[in-house]
Amino acid sequence: MRHVITLSLLLYLLPAHSRAAETASDIIRKVDGNQVFSTETFKAKMVIAKDKRTLTKTFYGYGQKQDMKSFMEFTNPEDKGVKYLKLDDELWIYFPDADDVMKISGHMLRQGMMGSDISYEDMLENDSIEEKYDSRLLEDKQVDGRECYVVELQAKKPDVTYDKQVIVVDKVWYIPLEIELYARGGRLLKTMKQSEVQKLGERFVPMRITIRDMRRRNSQTVVTFEEIAFDGKVPAKVFTKGYLKR
């Protein structure tokens, strides 16, 4: 799941060798270095708040960084057995009620995953685009009392997903605590906040991610990791379409 959400949004924040903003690229590179792992295993809870209603969903999953593979299965009663499989740039879903595996494509990609503020498109973002953004350092700011750098990324050409991103990075942990995603035209579309950072072995891991679609004022999605482990053994069979149906 981390892979699916965080990395999807962050992976392409790879070093931008900009002459003007070396510091900024350093920061980004360090953030990226912080994310190095080969596999991950997690158990998480997703709380979707819409107006006054909240939906709680639980799931577990695996990720494999190298081939951009991830798998997750829902365990809360309403969605029990719903499985997602991401293979490179394809997304497959299995509904136990229909006993059918479906590829998510076309206009469905714009919909939120399980009604959340995370669109399927977000889950598929893969572009690890170097040289697509100009980065520069803005004025530092504090988030929850912690000192942070503020890096602004500006797309060089209109061929990336977001025209502009603003990333607020913790100066000690090198973890983005806030990410703002802007559309062409300057409008803030999405924000993502990471909090409850814990130290797991050598690395710092945010256990809570809050995503908001700014076009839907009264909704937000909070993902809380209950368990998370890196570089353990992940069963290879879960990353196959055949496994979805079982």
Binding site: V160, L181, R184, G185
Partner: peptide, 8 residues
């Protein structure tokens, strides 16, 4: 080209 565009 795939970039999000939002217009008033």
């Amino acid at each position: 080209q795939g970039m999000y565009t939002s217009v008033e």
